[in-house]
Design a protein around this nucleic acid. Structure first.
Length: 118
DNA sequence: AAGATGACTAACT
DNA sequence: AAGTTAGCCATCT
């Protein structure tokens, strides 16, 4: 069965979406980590692309993916930035200026918070 | 087909 | 601390 040699984008991004769906409420992960967990080490840029192309029907918690500096990868004056920030703050993620403390809200810190409280 | 782009990152200066 | 460079690779011009 020789269909096409190139798989549809959806198939290639499937793993990324699954990882993102696994990020618990109130926690954040950076693009590089998501890529690594999805089996694509070193391919952080692909994660940003995968999120941008994800179907709305998938209802991904895309806002829980931030960059390695704990910042949102959108211009601070953009609508996208405000939307992402609002969603994160609504689930308890705190910002210090523009920055999220990854020690507290990254996977490790978030787990500790869930188990031990803030 | 070759060059630019981007929801990135780590390593250098 | 802030800017640059190099690695990454699917898409778009």
């Amino acid at each position: 069965m020789s269909e096409k040699t190139t798989a549809p984008e959806e198939d290639r991004y499937q793993r990324v979406w699954e990882v993102v769906e696994g990020i618990p409420t109130g926690a954040v992960l950076n693009y590089g980590e998501v890529a690594r967990l999805a089996g694509y080490p070193g391919r952080a840029r692909m994660v940003g692309r995968a999120l941008g192309r994800a179907p709305r029907s998938r209802k991904l918690p895309w806002h829980r993916v931030v960059n390695a500096q704990g910042m949102l990868s959108f211009p601070a004056d953009s609508e996208k930035y405000r939307t992402q920030r609002r969603l994160l703050e609504a689930e308890g993620v705190e910002f210090d200026g523009e920055v999220i403390d990854l020690e507290r809200f990254g996977p490790e810190g978030a787990l500790d918070r869930i188990l031990w409280g803030p």
